[in-house]
């Protein structure tokens, strides 16, 4: 057994192969939550439609956060909604990923100067992928989801699951809920 487990710079060989298998499973079954805050949600729905069929990659929508892997911030986020979105994020089961879709979710966009709009989803959530556009076309959203797939491919999942490390990008805002 010791001969099989070759210690390399990036962990053992056997664990690496197991990780590859598990990551293959995870990346091809990326279920997203059917949740939109504004007009980008129209493009989000379109992504599941015939022209850019997200189901080809095994991405289907789930209605409940417990069963979703990806939270797509589709649209303008107001301060009143921010705490609700954070609650949805907390309800999702690990491992989970966040995509900021469109200008509003990236930076506040057109409504950045408004008193009611959060200036970017990354101020209160650990965003993995930013998709530009107002709104982004469904092809862009597919590309964003494929970037998440690439991110998953590189993750040492077994190590991450055992050590249970916190996401370093999480802003860790206390009292938002």
């Amino acid at each position: 057994m010791d001969a099989m487990v070759e210690q390399g710079p990036e962990g053992s060989f056997v664990l690496g192969k197991v990780d590859d298998l598990l990551n293959l499973a995870r990346k091809n079954s990326l279920w997203y939550m059917l949740f939109g805050t504004a007009c980008c949600a129209i493009e989000l729905m379109q992504t599941g439609g015939p022209r850019s069929d997200a189901d080809r990659f095994g991405m289907v929508f789930r209605a409940t956060p417990r069963q979703s892997d990806t939270l797509i911030l589709a649209g303008t986020i107001t301060y009143k909604m921010a705490s609700r979105i954070r609650l949805l994020y907390e309800q999702m089961a690990e491992p989970k990923y966040v995509i900021a879709m469109g200008s509003c979710a990236n930076t506040g966009g057109l409504f950045q100067e408004s008193y009611a709009v959060v200036n970017g989803g990354d101020l209160f959530l650990p965003v993995d992928v930013y998709i530009p556009g107002c709104p982004p076309r469904s092809e862009s959203l597919i590309e964003g989801l494929m970037l998440i797939q690439q991110k998953i491919e590189k993750e040492p999942w077994l190590k991450k699951a055992w050590t249970n490390t916190k996401n370093p990008k999480d802003p860790q805002i206390e009292g938002l809920l």
């Binding site: 499973a25 995870r26 091809n28 439609g49 015939p50 069929d53 095994g58 089961a93 491992p95």
Partner: peptide
Amino acid sequence: SRIGPNRVGPFGLLQWLVDGLKLIMKEDV
């Protein structure tokens, strides 16, 4: 008028195994 899952295995035939494996790995809340 879509295609459906076709990336894992020939014609996507292993998609169900992949989904099952992923669900086992997910946190049990």
